[in-house]
Amino acid sequence: MIALFLRDLRLAIRAGGGFGLGLGFFLIVAVLVPLGVGPEGRTLSLIAPGILWVAALLACLLSLDRIFALDHEDGSLDLLATAPIPLEGVVTMKALAHWVTTGLPLTLASPVLALLLNLPGSGYPWLVLSLALGTPALSVIGTFGAALTVGLKRGGLLLSLLVLPLYVPTLIFGAELVKRGAAGQAVATPLLLLAGITAGAAALLPFASAAALRVNLR
């Protein structure tokens, strides 16, 4: 299973692997929003948590259809399904590789971009924490959506429609956590709910994803 994880990382950083896709999108949104909204510092710091979280969510969405589609096209997915690794392990490793190539870079880059959006100083640790806690859920839920749509040609639109409603709780609690942290309020409730969503998704969804893959491979 480690071999699969390493192969996906290697594929992501090779030419055409799409490693920079999500990060580039995140960067573009965070740079363009201040230009569009204007230099009003108060407005920017008010919308910063929401903008950063929406941008991170859409950046994750951008690379979801690559998770299984490429492996399905070249036949690797059939071969992985007949390999000695359980399919649940395959989807877990795929989700992990997606998070390392998308969610982790977003989390690490977010403080720099938060500067552009004038996020209040007390919000920075909460921003990084909320993304570190929340983006794994985005990858796991997205892997489930990708498994559901794997056999479809140009399934990207359907994938987005399926996955976006499932992303909403993560978005709400993630942005709320940053907002409260920046304002110096109690953060326990959104923090625990965000962590709970991620833990629940990571524990349950690999089984659903594997079941969806089995049906789609028939």
């Binding site: 699969l4 594929l11 692997g17 036949g75 690797s76 059939d78 071969l79």
Partner: peptide, 25 residues
Amino acid sequence: YASHADGLKATLTVAENLAFWAQIF
């Protein structure tokens, strides 16, 4: 099982492709 498709990754070398499947199995 060997299907019509070979399950190769275009950007990996021959050795990397084979080594990957050897590790998986």
